[in-house]
Design a binder for these strands. Structure first.
Lengths: 353, 353
DNA sequence: AGCTCCCATCGAATCGATTCGATACGCGGG
DNA sequence: CCCGCGTATCGAATCGATTCGATGGGAGCT
């Protein structure tokens, strides 16, 4: 009669243990309101029936939360995770979420399929925009319409979204001052993508006006705070080979037109520029100084210590996750701006001549 | 009277549109059984009320599935994602899941906190063991007890778990034959961790008997198929610096005792061995041949073309995801073994003398 | 011995949507 | 003119657990 395949429910277990479903529920949740012998009886009955605990879906419905928090990363995973900063950020996020037994769901901006359909179908308690700050993202609209709390790391800046930010502008300005102090006057920037349309090349005013990403904008502004207008070369993605490409474009020119310092907007791009310099037989920092941003752990740089602006990436992740947890709990944390610190390495020095 | 904050439900919308909740549900699911004008009326009412669509949690309960599939990666994210193969695998997985509007939840074997508590709380339709094949993982037991379908990539091999495998052994044997054919007789192996206990050093029989990972075992066996017993040096994690360390241990010895070829069990480790060789002033493949496994995209290798065994990592991910989807749909796909291909690069050649 | 208080357990409502079988209505054919 | 059939909509059961307020019984105190 009773089909073997039918998975037992809490009610089944309760019946076998001779208690009401409510008591069985209390027993499983470890409430002190249930007497130890009773709990024992329930647990035994469960074991006998092969019941592994309350169904998470049903519990989610009743509790009103699913225990899942979504993290949006731009592009597809394959590219997003080439970026060590993205990984470290996610690591910081999981650290906090894991401590709350909350899971992290990855939402990749898979160009092919908008993740909007996923959001409509997947139960999310909150969402973190980890590496993609688009104010006009349709996914963002949907989340807000649904009343799903949203945390944004470095943007988008929208009403009702908690912002976890880093002082990109001040950090880059510090770095720029360092280079200015060394005597550099002809510097150029290797910029991360202003939008994800695969474009690369010099950044003009029109392009800049259509920039998507706050951090990129702020890192441009920080340099200009010190040097005034500075030529910037945009890369198609934040990857080493893009840095190499940009580096060759900027450095493979007659020495008179060559910048004495290149500020890359990320350590990954800086690593590429270093490679380009090496390929062109240029000495760093003798012929050209190179600086990055992030303070990432680039094991493949070897002994070279890159001059960079260190941002607390893992702390950023932890803050974002904590903010998300707070929002789920109904409190609204304040926006945060984390400080950064200039770290001078061996890749910057006084300009030649 | 009506609190503004109360989010409208399907019933509210239905009432406003003058239809029953069932019809409203049909309208949202896009069923052809509802007349277009009616659907229109429902959608309008929803828009007016700020209703963004059916609650995913409630829908999950009724449907019996949550639209979330969990992927287990060993260690914590920060280390797991240093491995380009893991990332590519995950990318393949998301490609398929995304096409089905299913989300990928990351479960990291955060040593501190077992993910068991997460599994108990998070609604999962299926789970994929992506990079950690432990037969005795308590998480695995819990999933099976819950009746959650499980797919294992390269293990664990357990009843009721669908296996997506790669022919590690045959691939490594091919590679070994290549080296044997070149004349190598004194080869050594740089092995990936046999278990995740941070140990590194020579592998002895006792250690080997306690090996956790099938792929590691198979890659050892493939070499032995050709060369017989071969010394192996175990690394603490699959990372470049571990490869460097192992490389120095194996290569920084008197030439007479130095292996003429080093087989690393992954491209990442091989990259480390190449670095070690360079540091020691050894020519590759003049003084020592180096080979890897994976066919990974290691941008930081530069022009060096590593001899390796190419495995279809993205296809492995897609297969695993497809298997998971099939299981969710109630069909049980067969186990798979994917083929690999030897790719000869510039890092192997005949031994000196 | 009687009264009170407290602790363990229970009942019942609720979370919000989905889905199947039933119903009502309108139209065409005999 | 009536019957039958098809289509659009509706009712009600169901998914499985949680939780709050209520109840009953036993222990402690006077």
């Amino acid at each position: 009669m009773t089909p073997v395949s039918a998975r037992p429910t809490l009610a089944t277990v309760a019946a076998r243990a001779g208690v009401s479903p409510s008591t069985a529920s209390l027993a499983f949740s470890g409430s002190p309101r249930v007497a130890p012998p009773t709990r024992e009886r329930v647990l035994t009955a469960a074991a006998e029936l092969g019941y592994a605990g309350p169904d998470p879906i049903a519990a989610s419905l009743r509790r009103g939360r699913s225990g899942v928090i979504g993290a949006f990363v731009g592009e597809r995973l394959l590219y997003a995770f080439r970026d060590p900063v993205a990984i470290q950020l996610l690591d910081g996020i999981t650290e906090v979420l894991g401590a709350h037994d909350v899971g992290l769901l990855l939402l990749a901006g898979d160009t092919g399929r908008p993740s909007v359909a996923q959001i409509a179908r997947i139960p999310l308690d909150a969402a973190i925009f980890a590496t993609c700050g688009l104010e006009d993202d349709p996914a963002l609209d949907l989340l807000l319409a649904r009343g799903v709390p949203v945390v944004a790391v470095e943007g988008p800046v929208v009403d009702g979204v908690v912002l976890v930010d880093v002082d990109d502008r001040a950090g880059t300005a510090d770095l720029a001052r360092h280079l200015h102090g060394l005597g550099h006057r002809r510097v150029e920037i290797v910029a991360m993508p202003l939008r994800l349309d695969g474009r690369r090349g010099p950044v003009d005013a029109a392009r800049r006006a259509r920039a998507h990403y706050r951090d990129v904008r702020h890192r441009l502004e920080g340099v200009e705070e010190v040097f005034g207008p500075v030529p910037a070369f945009e890369t198609a993605s934040n990857a080493v080979d893009e840095g190499v490409h940009a580096g060759r474009v900027l450095l493979d020119v007659p020495p008179a037109r060559r910048p004495t310092a290149v500020l890359a907007q990320s350590d990954v791009l800086a690593a590429g520029v270093l490679q380009a310099a090496a390929q062109l037989g240029l000495d760093v920092p003798g012929d050209v100084s190179v600086a990055g941003f992030d303070g990432a752990d680039l094991h493949w740089l070897g002994a070279t210590r890159l001059t960079t602006v260190v941002q607390p990436t893992d702390e950023k992740g932890r803050r974002a996750a904590q903010a998300a947890m707070d929002l789920v709990d109904g409190t609204r944390p304040a926006d945060t701006v984390l400080p950064v610190a200039l770290r001078i390495g061996t890749t910057t020095g006084p300009p030649a001549r």
